[in-house]
């Protein structure tokens, strides 16, 4: 017998969904931390120093 609660107390996320989430995170990380375009660099400058990304 499956109750609704039992079915969803341990929910699996698809591997594709996990990969998509990780990829989205990596893209944002590149923008916030690594892209050298000067507009991005200037805006993110203080953040990069505080988070200790290699900045200059």
């Amino acid at each position: 017998m499956k109750t609704k609660t039992l079915a969803l107390t341990h929910v699996d996320t698809s591997f594709a969904g996990i990969a998509l989430t990780a990829l989205a995170g990596l893209m944002l990380l590149l923008i916030a931390g690594f892209a050298q375009a000067s507009v991005l660099h200037d805006g993110a400058h203080d953040t990069r120093h505080a988070i200790a990304f290699p900045c200059h």
Partner: peptide
């Protein structure tokens, strides 16, 4: 300048969050 910093802090931690939660979901699998 400080508003940009706050914004990019949130972008950076959202990036960290997505990577971290992908790891959490993978471990649950």
């Amino acid at each position: 300048r400080h508003a940009m910093t706050a914004g990019f802090d949130m972008v950076a931690y959202t990036a960290f969050a997505l990577i971290l939660l992908a790891g959490m979901a993978l471990a649950e699998r």
